[in-house]
Design a protein around this nucleic acid. Structure first.
Lengths: 352, 352
DNA sequence: TTGTACGCGTTATCAA
DNA sequence: TTGATAACGCGTACAA
């Protein structure tokens, strides 16, 4: 009941082990005749070469590790699909580790990848820069990530220099600008932003503030404790708290915003929920823009205008870049993709 | 710049490679003195044992493969978290393969796992039963899956016998019954079901029909082409199509349902959207129950009553079961967990 | 083209 | 307890 080895295949095909090895790596210098014999033997024996042995003997394992923050994040799921696509087509298998769980188990994801002898790593979540450097294999950063001063990616990411660890991401600040431009184009001037913690939210918020100032509007940011629907709903009330209402037409009070940019789709839903609870008509009295173009944005009940980063494509490019780093000598180059606005029914011109 | 090996550690600690190996597997039969010396050497050399070599030399790789249908499915993501938890704590690393992508790349996920020499597989998606059998390693089925007549799990799954491949799942038919009982308890009698393709939807629908008949009500099932919000919305209109309305009070027309059980949360949202488009008040004129207790069910805007299967726990148990099969002689036993109803605001007593 | 020998980093099996 | 040595399955020369 033992697994067949390359020796068994060679014997059955009546050739040497070397030849079998050559067929496996489909070398061009084997006669069609012998090749067929070998392939037939492999089929008959139901032979599958061992990646373990190949990795041990060879110079690479044809596997890469992906460090992920949170599996429930749909952004990652999409990016992961793109990653898998470009990596699998290059013959690389993928193993994943999420930082949350590993932290819970007090297991450094990078240590796991070291033990696995991966040929490269994709950083889609926080990982110790020092650990990555010690790993000694190519790495790419996938998506926006908090970049500390000592980050492996350096500071030049996207600014023209080619860092040791390229950053492949969507330009999320540009996404924030897009949202503001869209709302301003509809005629809105009092546009608020519901933001939250994390690097992505930070970039999106930054783009929002930039564009607001560019247009001569006053940025108005409210930050939630988390980037969730509930957290956004909890703080959205502040948007109306000090504002002029029918009951409170005091001087000095600020006019309430007519539009809100939420840094992700669930938070946009939270804002809509809060608005409805406060008796404001949606979308007539409050336009809302989300971010990520998640499935829920397309729900008829919401029909959310949102910013799409095409994370699948970003993931695919990250995979390509990593493979080129592993296989070639090409110097890695960071990429930043421009997002686009998906217009739906949650944004309309302001009332009056 | 080469990686340190077990030889280096042995030399530095002044012991044999065998002893280092024993320390690695923390065997009880090594003197505390030597052990400390070895550990110190490992630390100083920044040594990480190679899983490749260990797998090649040993009898197992301490890795398991997970076959997944669709990564975007939140159910899997939750279950995966549970799986990772129970497997990682046993020292097993995980590699995943989704059938959709692999099919696209014409790559049999099981073949990949064979090459990786995994110690076991978790089937959370469709996989060729024959391929699994040929793999020759323990396997568990995670979640409800279409069971063909020749399925590896056999037919006895959950019916008292212990099949070769145990099934660890939530009792989804019971979930359907729960939903009906809840609605009936509120006073509803005309309860419809919006179902779709797939094993899970089938089980949920079956539970619905069972319970409806038990209560003496007439089952009323409408099936969507997919299990998505859009597909559900597209067919929900049928629920009111032939029904008695103010404009069409013809004899023989059927009364419209006062409640709907959708086989998942997005579909429930689709039903609500369709109801609103048809001018029916929600939830006053139409109560809706979803399934899976996905994050969106908790959104204030929806506040969906839903059935929760606690997939994380199911995943965790699947991991435990697989580990016990790999390591022990315990005979595997299928498990079926009872779901629970999460009551929110989308279900109310019928009008009048 | 083919055969041969060796190395890859561990575990497993015996001896000591 | 410890240590030597043989697998483990394959890549990579190198020589034939």
């Amino acid at each position: 009941m033992k697994r067949p080895t390359i020796y068994d295949v060679a014997e059955r095909a009546g050739v040497s082990k070397s030849l079998v090895s050559l067929v496996l790596r489909d070398s061009p210098r084997v006669s069609a005749e012998r090749r067929e014999a070998v392939l037939a033997a492999m089929r008959e024996l139901d032979y599958t070469p061992s990646r373990l042995a190949a990795g041990l003997a060879g110079t690479r394992t044809r596997s890469v590790g992906v460090v992920i923050d949170d599996f429930a994040n749909l952004w990652f799921v999409e990016a992961l699909a793109g990653l898998r696509e470009s990596l699998a087509s290059g013959g690389y298998s993928l193993s994943v580790a999420d930082t949350r769980l590993n932290a819970h188990l007090s297991l450094d994801p990078i240590a796991v990848f070291r033990a696995l002898r991966v040929d490269g790593v994709v950083l889609a979540g926080e990982a110790s820069p020092e650990a990555v450097r010690r790993l000694g294999v190519p790495a790419v950063v996938l998506g926006t990530r908090a970049l500390g001063g000592d980050d492996v990616a350096g500071r030049g990411a996207g600014s023209g220099t080619d860092p040791a660890v390229p950053v492949i991401a969507s330009d999320e600040a540009e996404g924030g600008r897009l949202a503001v431009r869209h709302l301003a184009g509809l005629g809105h001037r009092r546009i608020a932003c519901v933001s939250g913690p994390g690097a992505s939210a930070g970039e999106r918020e930054r783009g929002y503030s930039d564009e607001m100032r560019t247009l001569g509007f006053e940025p108005n940011v409210v930050r939630a404790a988390e980037t969730s629907e509930a957290a956004a709903r909890a703080v959205a009330g502040e948007l109306w708290a000090g504002s002029r209402t029918a009951e409170r037409p005091t001087a000095g009070a600020i006019d309430a915003p007519t539009a809100v940019f939420a840094v992700n789709d669930p938070m946009a839903v939270g804002v809509i929920g809060a608005a409805r609870a406060a008796g404001r008509a949606f979308p007539e009295e409050l336009s809302v823009v989300g971010y990520d173009d998640s499935p829920l944005a397309a729900y008829a009940l919401l029909s959310l205008t949102t910013v799409s980063g095409d994370s699948r494509h970003v993931g695919e490019q990250a995979g390509r870049t990593l493979v080129s780093m592993i296989e070639g000598a090409e110097r890695p180059v960071s990429m930043r993709f421009v997002p686009r606005l998906v217009e739906r029914a949650s944004t309309v011109p302001p009332a009056r």
